[in-house]
């Protein structure tokens, strides 16, 4: 069974969301998602400064097995991306909740956070899959 840290929130499409500070959130993909996809070979990230709406496709993680869209869980502005992934996409496999983070959003509507799942709910979802 894959792990899902309890201090994070999750989406049905396997992104995780970490609160960095009030209104700023870091996004990545879950351990379950990276395990399903296998070795990452390319990560395409959004541009810093671009604005996204919740559930917009805003990144692509491409593994040996498949390319998969990453959806922004929150609306807002992309304020930082993980540039280390350009040369080391395998960070997503090795440390999906740490060095393998994808981007940071400055949320325009923090109430969207209420729609997200807790770790417990997410684990139930992944066990059903």
């Amino acid at each position: 069974m894959s792990n899902a840290p309890s201090h994070l929130r999750y989406t049905r499409s396997h992104e995780w969301i970490e609160t960095i500070s009030d209104g700023t959130y870091r996004i990545g993909i879950s351990d379950h998602a990276q395990d399903l996809l296998g070795d990452m070979v390319f990560i395409e990230l959004p541009e810093v400064g671009s604005t996204v709406s919740a559930s917009d496709e805003c990144a692509v993680v491409e593994s040996v097995k498949a390319a998969s869209d990453v959806y922004s869980p929150l609306s807002g502005e992309i304020i930082e991306i993980n540039e280390a992934l350009e040369d080391s996409p395998d960070l997503v496999n090795r440390d999906p909740y740490g060095d393998g983070w994808l981007f940071t959003v400055k949320a325009s509507d923090s109430s969207e956070l209420d729609e997200l799942m807790s770790a417990d709910e997410y684990v139930v979802l992944t066990n059903e899959e």
Partner: peptide, 20 residues
Amino acid sequence: AKIVDFAGWDMPLHYGSQVE
């Protein structure tokens, strides 16, 4: 190993990282 079906056989796809 991550096991997958291959032609009716349960076979190892990889043991952690196929690139490694």
